[in-house]
Each structure stands twice: as C-alpha cells, then as structure tokens.
C-alpha cells in the first residue's frame, strides 16, 4: 500500500478495521482529485474542442499562476495542521508596496517586498507558536492588519505601475509562446518538490501535522518548522501579489482579496486534509488546476460569474467534509 505512506500507519497498528478505512480514505484522496480533473477537462473539451489547443492551454495555465503560488505556500501551513487566512490580504499588500516602491527601487522592489511579507509571516508564526494562539485567529487578525496597511499606504486607491520593471512576469517566451509566469510557477513548484523530496522537511511537516507531541518527543524541530511554514506562506503570498501587479499594471489594496477562498478550496480539493499531516505539492497542483479548469468550465457553460462565490463556498465545505480526518478531532469546535 504505497498510499499509506508515513502519514500515520504507525498509529494504527493492531487496529484492523481502522487500517482498511484509513487506507481507503487515503486512496480516495489520491485518486479522486486526478479523476475529477480528467473528467472536467474531458467535459470541457467535448463542449468546446478548441479548449485542447496549445494556445488555450497556455492561457489557462497562465491564469492559474497566482493561485498556484499562493496555494503552494499556504499548503505548508495546512500540512502542519494550521491555516493561513492572511495570504490573500498579504498579496494585496504586496501589490500596493511593490507599486509604490518600483519608482524608487526599480527591480529591487521585488525582493524587498517579498522580504517584508516574509517578516509579516514570521510575526504571525511567532505569535502562533510562542503565545499558542490558534492559527486561524492570528492570521484573521493579520488579514485585518495587512489590509489596513495596504489601505493606508495606498490611500485606498489603485496605484498604477509604469515602465518595464515587471514585464518579466507577464510575457511569452520561446518558440512555443510559453507564458513566462508559467515557467516561474513551475520553477517555484520544482523547488518545493525538491526540498520536500530530498530534505527532512517533508517528514517534519507531516509528523507535526499527524501528531505534534510525538514529533516534539521524537526530536523534530517543531517550533522552527511551524514558524518556517508561516514565513514561506507569507513570502509566496507576497510573490503572488507581485505577479498580479505584472498583469494589471497596478497595485490595489483589495486586488487579491477574493483569492482567499479559491486558495483554500484548491488546497483541500487537491486532497490535502485540513486537519494536517496529509498532503503535498503534487496534490496542490492538481487542486489548483481543478479550480482553474472549473472556472473556465463555468464560463463555457454560460454560468453567470456572480454565482462563483456560492460555488466556492459549497466546494470548500464539500471538499473539507470529504478530506477531513475525523479520527484526529475528538470534538469539533
């Protein structure tokens, strides 16, 4: 059973029916998202054969990039069992800051903004871990604070970006007209995948998400790993905000705010359990593609975009209901 990897087979020794149940659950979480994605692509391709042309595939992938970057970071926090509700507002803040700072700093605005966002994540992670405040609350507070910073810095208006500083985020390269954003996201995902595959980080994340006291007793660097997850999540959010500025040529204090629910939806639809300890970057890619393709599918089917929010709400609740590991929650608050 390759799917019952390190995520908790140990804790279920000598527990016959449990083992098969959890094995079935994990198999479901692995196979279902891929099937859903394939079915969606097939359905849209039948409805509109143009969907499978190279140019439209590149366009769809291109539009998935901000979501992909946000979700890769936020996935780490969910993997350790927490949640980061501040990513969308951090991305908005990053868009405002980068738009404000490009005139003075030029290209250096990009790393500076990512560092500022990473520091914001460090603050949230430190409060969560040191003061032992639930992560949803810290990041909900963070959401309000970063939105406030963005509103204050921008004077609640859209800040246009002129010049070619951010052109690299939104051009086409090579003979196949590959969108640069897709290459950047692919590189980022590759880095995530390599780190998770060849360093102990993945084991730490999953052991913390599965059973934090056990991870602590086994000597895993629990505090550092949890804080690092928040830092990476926030840095990714900042980077996603910069990518958004590249497409709209402006930064705005609410630019990315509507992305929070799609990010959470993408992560859980991909099969990462909201209870932590199960998931990974591959599942997140599938989840992001499902959300993006669904959005395309809805417009192909002629559904009004005002229904989109209803649809995300239903999707998040349904996906969480299917992926949650109830054996970990004695009481559901």
């Amino acid at each position: 059973m390759s799917v019952t990897d390190k995520t908790g087979a140990f804790s279920r020794l000598g527990d016959g029916p449990r083992l098969t149940q959890s094995a079935r659950r994990q198999l479901l979480l692995t196979v279902m998202p891929v099937i859903v994605l394939a079915a969606l692509v097939a359905a849209i391709a039948i409805a509109n054969p143009n969907f499978l042309r190279a140019s439209s595939i590149w366009t769809v992938l291109d539009s998935a990039v901000p979501l992909m970057i946000l979700a890769s970071g936020a996935m780490l926090v969910i993997l350790v069992g927490g949640i980061d509700l501040s990513v969308a507002s951090l991305a908005s803040m990053a868009s405002v800051l980068v738009a404000l700072w490009i005139p003075a700093l030029g290209g250096w605005a990009v790393p500076v903004v990512i560092i500022v966002c990473a520091l914001a994540g460090l603050l949230q992670g430190a409060i969560h871990v040191v003061a032992q405040v639930p992560s949803f609350l810290v990041t909900l507070g963070g959401l309000a604070v970063w939105s406030g910073v963005a509103l204050l810095a921008s004077g609640a208006s859209t800040i246009p970006v002129s010049g070619t500083t951010l052109d690299w985020t939104f051009t086409r390269v090579g003979a196949w007209n590959v969108p640069s954003a897709v290459l950047i996201a692919a590189a980022l995902v590759a880095v995530f995948a390599l780190v998770l595959a060849f360093t102990p980080v993945r084991r730490w994340l999953i052991s913390i998400g599965s059973s934090e006291p056990a991870a602590l007793m086994a000597g895993a660097p629990v505090t550092q790993t949890k804080i690092a997850a928040f830092v990476v999540s926030a840095a990714c959010a900042g980077f996603a905000g910069i990518m958004l500025v590249g497409r709209t040529f402006s930064g705005a204090p609410t630019l990315a705010d509507s992305l929070l629910l799609p990010v959470v939806a993408a992560i859980v639809v991909g099969g990462t359990a909201i209870t932590g300890g199960f998931g990974g970057i591959g599942r997140t890619i599938v989840g992001v593609l499902i959300i993006t393709v669904l959005r395309v599918g809805l417009s192909v089917a002629g559904v009004d975009s005002s229904y989109e929010q209803i649809f995300y709400g239903v999707l998040v609740i349904a996906a969480v209901a299917m992926t949650i590991d109830r054996s970990k929650l004695p009481f559901v608050k």
């Binding site: 629910l261 005002s306 229904y307 989109e308 929010q309 209803i310 649809f311 995300y312 709400g313 239903v314 998040v316 609740i317 969480v320």
Partner: peptide
C-alpha cells in the same frame, strides 16, 4: 464557506 455562499 457559508459566508461566501451568502455573499454569492
């Protein structure tokens, strides 16, 4: 999720 549904 319910909040998103309500706003939708």
């Amino acid at each position: 999720g319910m909040s998103a549904i309500g706003i939708g």
